[in-house]
Design a protein around this nucleic acid. Structure first.
Ligand code: FES
Ligand code: FES
Lengths: 162, 162
DNA sequence: CGGTTTTCGGATATGATATGTCCTTAATTC
DNA sequence: GAATTAAGGACATATCATATCCGAAAACCG
């Protein structure tokens, strides 16, 4: 069970977009260059964010992406699910139904106990992500990233934001 | 991010083995037949359980698997990690290091903020699984599975247990 | 002892999914 | 009209999950 690397990409990109001034857009090209990622493929991740209505886009030169909501209104789960999908990590294939001791045509009333436990764990994972806002990440980053790097990155981005 | 189906298989098999009388073994063949699974491939999952010291084996006719510990001493996380591995679901590929604004040779002191949050969620998932014991599952099953099916399954297993 | 049954591990094949590239279309800016 | 951009489809490649097969070693049974 491994998350795709697009999840990391999306989170980093959202963190950058969160620092963008009101009304400005940042292109895929800039985001790819900033993170050292293949532009074409990163584009797929950004499209996922767009389809999830987490970011807005505009075309043409000076086009690109910006957040569709305030950073404090976006949580980690939204971003993760946008690229990873909302499907649960555990799927019950109902192998209990293959038990040869079962009467013909017997039908289970509840989802099985095994799946319920695995889904509970899945929900705990999602709950944790749901509780962390994008603004929390930006806050942590602004404390931890050395001030000069933080500032020069911001300038680098502004220079390319349309 | 999707768990392999072997996880489900291992959990179901452990639940069955938990009902086995002291000192008896159940073969892969019986477990595969009971759950309608490919014997050869299920064998791989059981080998994983064996390598994790969750089950003990013996060879020859009347050989097979039995639990290595009491059901109340085995938790879900042990079983899941045995077949799924202990690696975290999120891997930080350190793309922050590609930031062109960084000074040459700059080295990060901490794991990055993004990864820490994702790992926290991963830990919440593991914590939930760690808290559920195999004996809890057996207890739930014995309440929910209709008594006649429960009993006949038990007899079916005993007839094949060496 | 010899034949059977079992686990174990390696080798191999197949299918699905993640990753990555390329190209076309439509919208926007200048 | 030319340049730039997101969107999305087609395609190629790599990795991993799934599945099967085989040989070796151990245990049981006659
Ligand atoms: S029958 Fe296996 S998890 Fe539901
Ligand atoms: S640098 Fe991306 S998660 Fe650590």
């Amino acid at each position: 069970m491994i998350l795709k690397s697009q999840v990391e990409w999306a989170l980093h990109c959202c963190a950058i977009l969160a620092g963008l001034p009101e009304g400005r857009y940042l292109s895929t090209k800039a985001l790819a260059e900033l993170h050292g990622l293949p532009k074409e493929y990163l584009s797929k991740a950004l499209q996922s964010l767009s389809q999830a209505s987490l970011v807005e886009t505009t075309l043409g030169p000076s086009g690109g992406y910006r957040l569709a909501k305030t950073p404090s209104d976006i949580n980690f789960l939204e971003i993760v699910e946008a690229v990873e999908g909302k499907a649960r990590s555990f799927t019950c294939t109902n192998i209990r139904a293959n038990n040869p001791c079962r009467p013909q045509g017997y039908c289970d009333s509840k989802p099985c106990a095994v799946a319920r436990i695995m889904w509970e764990a899945d929900e705990a994972w999602r709950d944790t992500l749901r509780r962390v806002r994008l603004s929390d990440l930006v806050g942590t980053l602004s404390e931890e990233v050395p001030a000069d790097i933080w500032r020069s990155t911001f300038e680098w981005v502004l220079k390319r934001a349309g």
